[in-house]
Design a protein around this nucleic acid. Sequence first.
DNA 1: AACATGTTCATAT
DNA 2: TGAACATGTT
Length: 775
Amino acid sequence: MGIQGLLPLLKSIQRPTDLKKYAGETLGVDAYVWLHRGAVSCAIELAQGKPTRKYVDFAMSRVRMARHFGITPYLVFDGGYLPSKAITETSRRKRRDECKKVGLELLKAGKPSQAHAELQKAIDVTPEMARHLMEELKKADVPYLVAPYEADPQLVYLERQGHISGIISEDSDLLVFGAKRLLTKLDQYGKCIEINRRDFCACREVSLTGWTDAQFRQMAIFSGCDYLDSINNMGLKTSHRMMRKHKTPERVVRMLQFDGKYRVPADYLTLFQQAEQTFLYQWVFCPKTKGLVNFTVPSPEVKVDELPFIGSFIEPEVARGIATGDLNPISKQKIVLDTLPSPRKRTASVAAHVAPQPRTIRETQAQKKPIDSYFKGHRRIPLGEMAPNCFVVDPARLSNMTDNGNRSIVYPLPRPYIAESGPGSSTGPRTYINRPESSPRILRRRTEPVTHLLSDGGHSLASEPRRQTMGSDTCPPNNSDGSEIASLVRPPKKARLCDDASSGLSPSKRRSKFFSPGNAKGKAIKKGEGYLKSDDSIEDVLKDLPDFDGWGLTVKGQKEVAVYQETQPTNTDNTKDDEKYVESGPYQSPISIHDIVPPNTPSIADRFAYTSSATSSSSTSGPGRSRTSSGRSSLSELTPASSVTSSTPFSSYTQPSTAKTTPATPRMTPLQRLGAQALGRSKQPSTPTFAVPRPPKRPSLGRPSLDSIPVNPAFVPLPPVDLAEVEALHDPIGSEDLMVPDSESDEAVEGQENLGSSKGAMGGKKIDLSRFRFA
DNA sequence: AACATGTTCATAT
DNA sequence: TGAACATGTT
């Protein structure tokens, strides 16, 4: 459920994006939410307890979709129930059961549609179903993990540790947990909304300037969350007001009790603190240490074994079993797989010409043929998507994915069940007391399928080395697992932006930078949004794209379209088709693409940026990494080298020269651009790591329009952030909402969780906040 | 007037 | 299931 009203509250910092933008990266996925529709489709079967392949098939199609866009999805499943939520869960279950009953009766009564509607509410994906899916994921070499308890903190943990570069989910709770990059509302075209934690300070609905993660979290809890109901008449707005005024939950509660308008339960503060501690310390699985760790490293004075509501500790061995899906996260019993009824129908229909269908999951494991191979040679893929897509899903990926020029930046694949005997495996829950409460009744930890997989699964073997490579590649910065979980430390970040921006130039000057008509904004700006004009990307798009309805008419476009039509006769030049991921026949041989589309055809740039960029990167710079870093500078924090600084404010703004170039700009949020430009102007050395040489042609390759290609006018990325306001907010003297004056005390409050870490992260860098203090 | 809360509608499957 | 709308309360 999450925090209701949170997303609307953050409307202004939500940025329309495209999944393609993250091509080459690993994105965490809230499996339950992501696959919910799939569960809906087989609600009846689920309700009847029939085993079904529908769910698994749906899930795998979504995986293919992600890969189609160049994404490696890292699926995270929910695990056991948290005590904090136990009540909720049991009541939910009751409701489900009722719905199920009603639905089944309706079904008997011959009212299938009504029944289905009812059964949709009864959807319950069992660990067994999830496990079936995991078998497929293993085969497809898709990283996944079952959280010991909740998927949300697990996802954010993975993000912090650098295993994933963002999170796909609809759950606003992730922001409360401190997710840095949240991608919501993902549709079949790969369109989605991006919410970056670092943009919070630009929120227009409510001022979050200077807010720490702790304050944001507390605000969210006050407004009502999964762990604690809100006080009457306490919504987000009021809780925000209270937090802004009183700064700490203690004071807020005291004030609430003082003025009698609110009915505050006697133990509310206690419950509040428990809720917050649940947010902070609940158990997650650390892929590196292969054991449970607290989501946030507790300070010495926090005794995790005195916090029953964060869930019980689980022995590493059991936790590993749960993480891999071998053990039921609730019962801790080994999950026994019964064979699924039928082979994949979908696959069968699509790939009739391919070898005989696998009969059972285990049998399939022996086959090294990835599912995607069944799609080879089918043409029904939309145009430009082909090239990257092919690379990504090429069956050869099992053995030489890297060679294809498409390499996931983060491919941790921390499969605990593989290298489990690591000497460091005990490093995880080190300081914590093991509570064997959940009996070691596990027969054997490893289940047969896994062994099977290990022994003969070509892909598992192949992926092992990569995993290691990537692991070391990815993790170094954040090595100590959880130790420096400091995503916090926000204020400095902002400070830096201000610092950089204001140090060199007067506000007015800066403003002129962004608002000056000099930026070739001759083109008309549509819609009267005030902030529209501040976004260069729009202009670029408009400049390059005279008319998106008729974009196939341009000379360049024509050429491209022709090419794609050749490739993909079935497709019209409808924009939607361009973007849409077509499940049925998305894959083509990379060769054809290579042959057909010249690597550096600049012509594609304008409209089919996705294609062009992918092609160019694969042919020119090879590995996706360079493409990523160059193309989307805002992601810089994700690369290993920079992740060290990721906890440092605006590390992402310390962009390489590219950030300054107009072409790269559209990839960043307006805010980010602000920082980047400011930085560039002040000639900050910034992260040298990013001085990665990039193909000179890149700028001309239409990167700018990448995320701006409108499918329909509504999709034209309207930069939601008003730069003027941002500036105002950051103005030392200006805005009334600045919380900076109190930021110190806030730090103190939050100190326990990120004291050491923030220090470590900031290193020698000293950020002077004093100038942002009220005079 | 602003906000919290309850209800309905649309959408996708 | 979420988003838009309508209502009730301060």
